[in-house]
Design a protein around this nucleic acid. Structure first.
Lengths: 162, 162
DNA sequence: ACTGAAATCTCCATTGT
DNA sequence: ACAATGGAGATTTCAGT
């Protein structure tokens, strides 16, 4: 009997791979030399392992996180949206619109009363109000919308710990 | 009359700074040479601008984003928490506990019925249940807890567009 | 699959405009 | 405040174990 098939045939990650990922999660600009020293290997295998994980999609993207309020995006809002009808077409239309809106950093489909949870950033309340009324509510089939304002960020990380 | 004071005296960002930030947000491992080409400057001023923005805190961190399900974290849950009492001490205790929990990627203080919104990841329902019962609910003063399960991720970005 | 070293390319401090 | 330069250091490839 063959081993159980995996989605998309991702080769299993060993302990060294996970250690490399831990370091890269903390600092995407770490040099290969630094990472190699961290996992007690030479640069060659580390370079190969990183390339393999980039190609297999384990590593999604190297990004720079900014201080939102210092670049004029001081307001964060969690926004719940339900659609008036749940046809395939209505859903696709909504998703397409959301993907184009730069104010929306995150869009999740959720269980419960609402269909979507959005994380939205704006410079201030005026800008958010404009987004709410003229952009979000203007998408066809958008029904109920509810905004919850974020008063403070206690924790914000992307570090997955294995 | 002097110009209006800013919090923490952040020197204003010009159009070139914003262009650099746009490129760095998309790819934290971009070389200075690549970024310099993108903004039609030589490497020297680009290097200086980036260093300045790192020191002033505009640039928070360079991180690597992983594919959560490919590293065994296939379940995402939005979790609402309210505290039984709102003393300074109770809040601090809760925050301290949350900061130590690797399952919690995000913790926001919000307006409305609940006090906190948590974004939690786990391998599966068993692991989440264990977190809920034995870790989250075990924090003193935690009152009502409500879980909303994420069924799909439509969009997930960190790119702030100015 | 890893080591060590060589070739190429990038970084970044200095100097000059 | 930016360009050009060159030594230092990183990346990437290749031979060897």
């Amino acid at each position: 009997m063959a081993k159980a098939p995996q989605k998309e045939e991702t080769p299993a990650l060993d302990r060294i791979d996970l250690e490399i990922l831990k370091l890269l999660q903390q600092n995407a600009r770490a040099t290969i030399k630094e990472i190699a020293a961290g996992v007690h290997l030479s640069t060659t295998p580390v370079h190969e392992r990183i390339k393999r994980m980039e190609e297999s999609g384990v590593i999604r993207q190297y990004v720079t996180l900014l201080n939102a309020s210092k670049v004029g995006k001081g307001l964060m809002v969690i926004c719940y949206v339900s659609l008036r009808q749940h046809s395939r077409h209505a859903g696709d239309k909504f998703i397409k619109s959301i993907l184009e809106m730069n104010e929306v950093l995150e869009c999740l489909t959720i269980s419960g009363e609402f269909d979507f949870l959005l994380k939205v950033v704006a410079a201030n309340m005026d800008e958010y109000y404009h987004f709410h009324v003229n952009k979000l509510s203007a998408i066809e089939n958008v029904g109920n919308v509810q905004s919850v304002f974020v008063m403070g960020v206690i924790k914000q990380t992307h570090q997955l710990v294995f």
